[in-house]
């Protein structure tokens, strides 16, 4: 049981590292979708003591939103704007992996320092949650394309989800559904914005929006 959950956490970490190292936006979107699926599996593995109906609603909404709806939206966005790759990120890919390893070490250190109210399922739970949140944040600040930034936002939310599903034990269904709804609205609006940016400017480089000043 214990080591099965650790395998899921390992796969989530590997998905984060792949997101940091891949320049192909299509691959990144697929990896984020797989991470969503992993979260559903994690929910299934940790929530064994709760009513089945609650768990299944949570799992179903996670799979539908994170592995089907968001990836479809983003794939459509990169198809319409003909953006295949993140060409010149602010931080290169090899450096991104190094930053990722530093962040992982930092989250492991933090995870061992922070006192937790409830005993956790695995000692890896908190570090993985922190790592995923920080990787999402890093993707937002280090990438140029709007699609990568939306992905960073999604990854950050995945981290919060890991935190919620492993640490919080009461009434998580409503909290998680609320967060999912927020993220859904957020990604939806960002999808529309990406569409408009690409129609106006033929590219998705966010930093060049600053030249729009009057």
């Amino acid at each position: 049981m214990h080591s099965r959950i650790d395998i899921i956490f390992t796969l989530i970490i590997l998905a984060n590292l792949l997101l940091l190292s891949s320049s192909r936006l299509g691959t990144c979107i697929n990896v984020a979708a797989i991470q969503g699926l992993l979260l559903a599996v994690l929910t299934l593995a940790t929530r064994t003591d709760e009513p089945l109906i609650q768990t299944s609603i949570l799992i179903l909404s996670t799979i539908v939103l994170k592995s089907i709806v968001f990836p479809q939206l983003l794939q459509r966005a990169i198809r319409d704007s003909e953006t295949r790759r993140e060409m010149r990120p602010y931080v290169g890919y090899a450096q991104s992996i190094v930053v990722g390893m530093v962040v992982l070490a930092l989250s492991l250190w933090l995870g061992s320092k922070l006192p937790l109210p409830n005993p956790t399922i695995s000692p890896l739970a908190l570090p993985v949650a922190l790592f995923t949140i920080l990787v999402g944040l890093f993707l937002i600040v280090s990438r140029r394309k709007a699609v990568s930034q939306v992905l960073g936002y999604l990854v950050m939310e995945n981290g919060i989800y890991v935190f919620g599903v492993t640490m919080v034990h009461e009434s998580t269904l409503f909290v998680e559904l609320g967060v999912l709804l927020d993220v859904f609205v957020g990604v939806f609006i960002m999808g529309i914005m990406i569409f408009h940016i690409s129609r106006e400017f033929d590219h998705l480089d966010v930093d060049r929006l600053s030249t729009l000043k009057d």
Partner: peptide
Amino acid sequence: IPQFLVGAGALSVLALIL
């Protein structure tokens, strides 16, 4: 190639942690 090797390095560090 450096990116490939740094990725492999990340895997072995991860193994050391896990």
